[in-house]
């Protein structure tokens, strides 16, 4: 059995190695796929903080993913049309600068997570799953009928946004940006887990009654975990939109929330590298099974079933020989 720390290192190294190899053998599309995997992994790392550390099974994380996407879409849309955003008395110019877009995405999704968290954390268990789903559906239907920004058609951004010192149009450079963001998020998560905050949350997840008895207030910590989680997923949304140069309401769909959960479970719930392994495997499966048969969803379904039934703790669970935390 392998120690989790080694796995984390191997996974990240491999993740970096594949696109570099692709660059050498001139397979730019593989770099695009790796970027997609990195961005989905980032979104799932966000969810993993709520889910793995906080024990909050959110089926509405697409809200934050979508908000991040639309933060990018709206700002870049106004920049490319040279029309400022009118917010009542306030007039903001659109921008194509990634740092500003990322900041906006993070702030907007953190704020949304705060509100949704405040309302949803009154419930627990299945009710929490369902209320987060309800918020997701609200955003989904709103974005479909919001014609100012394309409604269901979505918004196309013709040229990728800019980052100082990086040519984002070159696939490998954009991959570098996304990979860096992923590493930063993983670092944040590992610090969180080891901090007092993480320990308290962990105890609140495992034995809520005992935690409250000793005078901890898990509510506020859970809310904080939810906000951090939403903010990271929001950042991933902005990157995802930039990867596709396109945003649309599908970023708010419940299927996307479901997929994020799937990524985490494949890799291993609460494990640092869980979402990374999960999304790498998912993107690979999606790509190769699609080549193999028109009915590839059947095979994907069967593989997922096998993982749930026989690999509790996901891939990392198999490798380390330990179940993950139970949620």
């Amino acid at each position: 059995m392998i120690r989790e720390g080694y796995i984390n290192a191997i996974v990240l190294f491999g993740f970096l190695l594949i696109p570099i190899c692709a660059l050498i053998i001139e397979e730019p599309y593989t770099i695009t796929l790796a970027t997609r995997a990195a961005v989905l992994a980032l979104a799932a790392v966000g969810l993993n903080i709520a889910l793995g550390i906080g024990g909050l099974v959110s089926l509405g994380h697409a809200v934050f993913f979508g908000l991040g996407g639309y933060a990018m879409g709206i700002l870049a849309f106004h920049a490319q049309n040279y029309i400022p955003v009118e917010l009542g008395p306030l007039t903001i110019n659109g921008t194509k600068s990634m740092p500003i877009i990322w900041l906006t995405a993070v702030l907007v999704s953190a704020f949304a997570a705060l509100i949704i968290g405040l309302l949803s954390l009154r419930t627990t268990g299945v009710y929490f799953i369902m209320i987060t789903l309800a918020f997701g559906q609200m955003f989904f239907f709103f974005s479909i009928s919001w014609s100012a920004y394309g409604g269901e058609d979505g918004l196309s951004i013709y040229v990728r946004n800019v980052f100082p010192g990086v040519n984002t149009l070159v696939p490998i450079q954009f991959f570098g940006l996304c990979f860096t963001a992923l590493c930063v998020a993983l670092f944040v998560q590992s610090r969180l887990r080891a901090s007092i905050f993480g320990l308290v949350l962990n105890s609140a997840r495992q034995t809520p009654v005992r935690a409250e008895t000793v005078g901890l207030n898990p509510m506020r910590l859970k809310l904080l975990a939810f906000v951090i989680s939403g903010a990271i997923t929001g950042l991933a949304g902005a990157l995802f939109a930039d990867l596709n140069r396109f945003v649309s309401p599908t970023m708010f769909s419940w299927q996307l929330s479901g997929e994020l959960i799937v990524l985490i479970i494949i890799g291993g719930v609460g494990r640092l590298a869980g979402p990374v392994i999960g999304s790498a495997l998912f993107v690979t499966l999606e790509h190769f099974l699609g080549e193999f048969t028109d009915f590839w969803h059947i095979w994907l379904g069967l593989i997922l079933l096998l993982i749930v039934l026989f690999a509790r703790g996901g891939i990392i669970g198999i490798l380390t020989g330990k179940d993950g935390p139970h949620v």
Partner: peptide, 15 residues
């Protein structure tokens, strides 16, 4: 799915 379509279009053009 729009995002899959964009990804496939990148593949068609790049690879």
């Amino acid at each position: 799915k729009p995002d899959i379509a964009v990804q496939l279009s990148d593949k068609m053009i790049q690879s």
